[in-house]
């Protein structure tokens, strides 16, 4: 797999197993870890890239944001492996796996336009993206939003 060293990735997969993880064996992989342990580990982290193997499953949204802020400050790039479509918004580049095959990949906002593929594979779309695409269709919005606060602000203000 070609990894661009300047990008943060999200791998969305319906089959997160040892074979998938093997593709990232050149990088340090973090599995199940609580927020405080993860934070202290990252404060003295020497590698320039890190892989989170479903680690975000165990974190709250504010904790995820703090971890990513910490990485950005240290200029550490990351790869988030997840099955949760809501987490794709944490990366700039998205690779969607259907078992061992790449179904679609590209810049996250471009891949999210592939609504049919994502829904057919059972991932769906992130809720806010899904809602704003439909509101755009009904001419209640003029663009797609990627976070709750921006969408709520635009709709009701």
């Amino acid at each position: 797999m070609n990894i661009n060293e300047n990008r943060n990735y999200v791998i969305l997969s319906n089959c997160i197993n040892n074979e998938l993880l093997d593709k990232f064996k050149d990088y340090p992989i973090i599995n199940n870890m609580n927020y405080l342990d993860l934070k202290s580990k990252l404060e003295f982290f020497s590698s320039k890239r890190i892989v989170f193997n479903e680690t975000f499953y165990y974190l709250k949204n504010n904790e995820k944001k703090e971890i990513l802020d910490l990485l950005n400050k240290q200029n550490i790039k990351y790869i988030i492996i997840t099955s949760n479509v809501e987490e794709v918004l944490y990366g700039e580049y998205l690779i969607v796996y259907d078992y061992d095959k790449i179904a679609v990949e590209g810049l996250t906002k471009e891949v999210l336009k592939e609504e049919k593929i994502l829904k057919k594979l059972g991932f769906g779309l992130p809720f806010i993206v899904d809602l704003s695409i439909q509101l755009e269709f009904y001419e209640c919005l003029d663009k797609v939003y990627f976070d709750v606060d921006s969408l709520v602000g635009e709709l009701w203000n």
């Binding site: 809501e86 809720f127 809602l131 439909q134 509101l135």
Partner: peptide
């Protein structure tokens, strides 16, 4: 962290828009 649809409905409420407690996106739409 609450489900995204719940988060949206509660955020709307904070902005003065009272929506029913929808659990399906189509009903909310």
């Amino acid at each position: 962290d609450l489900p995204k649809i719940v988060e949206f409905i509660l955020a709307s409420k904070e902005n003065g828009i009272r929506l029913d407690y929808y659990v399906e996106i189509d009903e909310l739409l």
